[in-house]
Structures are given as C-alpha cells and as structure tokens.
Design a protein around this nucleic acid. Structure first.
Lengths: 202, 202
DNA sequence: CCTACCGATCGGTAGG
DNA sequence: CCTACCGATCGGTAGG
C-alpha cells in the first residue's frame, strides 16, 4: 500500500532536481521583472506548469525560493567577474582589468543571468530573513570591487580628491542603474564598459 | 435634514486641503521605504489617524495618491535643480554648474523630499496608468540633464570617447544609486557632489 | 504532484 | 469621516 502510494508519487512528479531548477529559473525571471511582492507562488507555479500547492513539494516557502535565487544571482556575477579577471594576461594594466570587470558585471546583469537582475530588483523588498542570507554572498562579491578600486586609487589612476569608497560606489551605481535604460541590441556592453572605464580613470 | 447631515460631516473631517496633504506626506514616507506594493491604504490611513475607508473621502483610489506623490516628487527635484542653477553667478564655470546640480539632486533625494525618493523607489512597480502620468514630469526633469551634459561635452570638459548619453546615464546612475549606501550624518552631500563632478570632468 | 481549503489581507464601496 | 462589508487574492496546509 505504502509502496504503491510512493510509486504514484514518482509518476506524478518530474525528476526532482530538475524541477527544482525549473522553479528557480521561473522565479528568477519573474522576480527580475516584477519584484518580490508582485511575484506570487501561483505565478511561479503556472510558469512551470504546476499548481500552487505543488511548489511546496520542492521548497518549504516562498522565501526559500527567493533566497536561493538571490544567492545564486550574486554567486553568478561573482564567478563571471572573477573568471574575467583571471583570464586576463598578466601584462594587463589597470584599465584593461577595469573594463573586463565592468563588462562581466554588465553582461551578467543585462544579458545572461535572470538571477543576478532578480537579486538587484528584489533585495530591498525581501524580508530580513532573506536579506541576511544574501548579505554574506554580497559582501564576498563586493570585496572584488573594493580590491580593484583600491588598486586603481593606489596606482593614482583615478581622479584626485575622490575617495576609494566614493569611486567604488560611483562605478556600482553606473552599472546597477543600467537596467533602467539598457535595451538589448541597441547598446553594446563592450562599448559601455570602455566608456565607463574612461569616465573613472585618469 | 440634508443640512444637518452636511454639518455633521464638517465636524468629523479636518480642513480639506490640509488632510489631503497629510495623506500625501504619509504616502510619500511609506512609499520611499516600502515601495508601491507593500504600501497599503490601511498603512497610509493609520499614519494620518484615519480608518481605511475614509481615505476615499479625499482621493478616488490608491493609484491617484501614488500618482500625486510621484509627480510632486519629480517636480520637487526639478525645482531644486533649476533654482540651484539659476542662483549661480553668471561667471560660474561648467564644474560649478555640475556640482550645484548634483548637490541639489542628492539633497532632494537623500535629505529633503520623501516625494522624490518615493518616486524613485515606486516608479517601476507602479501600474502603467500611474507611470504614464509621471512620464511627462520625468521627461521635463531629464531635459535639464540632457542640456547640462551636452554643454559639458561640447566644451570638451568630459572624457574623450564618452557619448553624451552615456555620460548622462552615468551621473544619473551614480546619484540614483546613492540611497543604497548613503547614511545621513555620515556622508556630506557637498563633498559627494564635488567627488562625483571630479569623476565626470576632465 | 493535485484538490480543496484556511485565515489573513488587499483595494474599494454603501450607507450613514 | 466611520462602520461594516464585498470579492479577489495571497502564502501556506491537509490529505491523498
């Protein structure tokens, strides 16, 4: 009896880890456009062809889904920028490093990763419990920019009288504001990265 | 009978325009911290010591309140930047104009106007009907920055190879991202404005 | 993984 | 300006 019930469950559900990822993909896509409050479990369920209650077979709560999306989103852009810097020749100068980092960040945010843009869009509206979970990831990512900008300032490649904190906040602001105006196809991320670097460097 | 009912109404309500403005003030304060979806009519009503249904004595809908806040918020920062530029001596150079405009914008966004920050926070989550109403105001405001940045680029005071569009989006991004990290008292808007201008100018 | 449902809350309305 | 209420919708649960 119990075995038969278990068998029935196996037929009704898709392969476990796969639908988990499908749910996160759908949630990321909805979160990046609608934000935390407007994205309902019913929206997510419908996007993956499920009923609302079935989501709880894969996740314990809406916030667990949102937290997973946000953490993955930060980790994704962390990996993108880290590997972009790692792939640079050791002869690369400050400007080339900065352009590579900006391009990788913009690419994750604007083209590649619904997860990264979902995090940016939803972070401030998510409850404290979710934000606390994401904070560790965010700090790890921001450390990349602290180091990069500090190096630039130390090498006197940045404008005089501008503190490292302000310079870092400026570049993050320029980049993270871009979803407000960027249109895929109409703008080139490589060109934007070079322009942003030209603004920031002396 | 009808006169007596009207008299009773007059006793129960505060003076009309005043509570209208109180409602908008409360809505602006809630919208700037919680955003469009999380700000409920019950929140707004409670903040002004009313019951939820009574709000409809002053406004036709939640969206009417939100639209009024957003339009006022853009008009406020428009006036702040316009008068800051007007008050400059005619001998003012590009850098002084840019610093004045940035300081006025940051001041409205970070210190003075709940309405301006409410608009920034809520615009993307508000329904189309509200955004359409605000769009006219936003375009009028953005025209200030188009003109200012175009003048700077024409005077060759900006970095080479950076288009006016990108330079304008960069400064707006730097400024509009500031609510993410700015802490009143710990940062000086005057200092920030000068640093931002130093980043943007050659 | 679905059906059926719960309590809470939302924007808004009727009637006074 | 309040009381009392409406239909819709939310996150979440029980039971299969």
């Amino acid at each position: 009896m119990a075995a038969k019930a278990a068998e029935k469950l196996l037929i009704q559900q898709s392969s476990g880890p796969q639908s988990r990822r499908e749910i996160l993909d759908a949630a990321a896509r909805l979160l990046k456009t609608q934000g935390y409050r407007a994205t309902t479990l019913r929206d997510i369920a419908e996007a993956v062809g499920m009923k609302a209650g079935s989501i709880y077979y894969h996740f314990g709560s809406k916030n667990e889904i949102v937290a997973a999306v946000m953490n993955d989103g930060v980790d994704w852009v962390f990996e993108a920028v880290t590997s972009a810097l790692r792939d640079l020749p050791s002869s690369a100068n400050q400007r080339e490093k900065l352009v590579a980092a900006i391009a990788a960040h913009l690419n994750a945010l604007l083209e590649y990763s619904d997860y990264t843009s979902a995090c940016l869009k939803s972070y401030n509206d998510a409850p404290d419990e979710v934000r606390r979970a994401a904070r560790t990831h965010r700090r790890r990512y921001e450390a990349i920019w602290v180091k990069l900008i500090d190096e630039i300032v130390a090498a006197k490649s940045s404008p005089k009288r501008v503190s490292p904190d302000t310079l870092r906040r400026a570049v993050l602001g320029m980049m993270n504001w871009s979803p407000e105006w960027y249109r895929s196809g109409r703008h080139s991320i490589e060109t934007l990265a070079k322009e942003f670097a030209d603004i920031l460097l002396r």
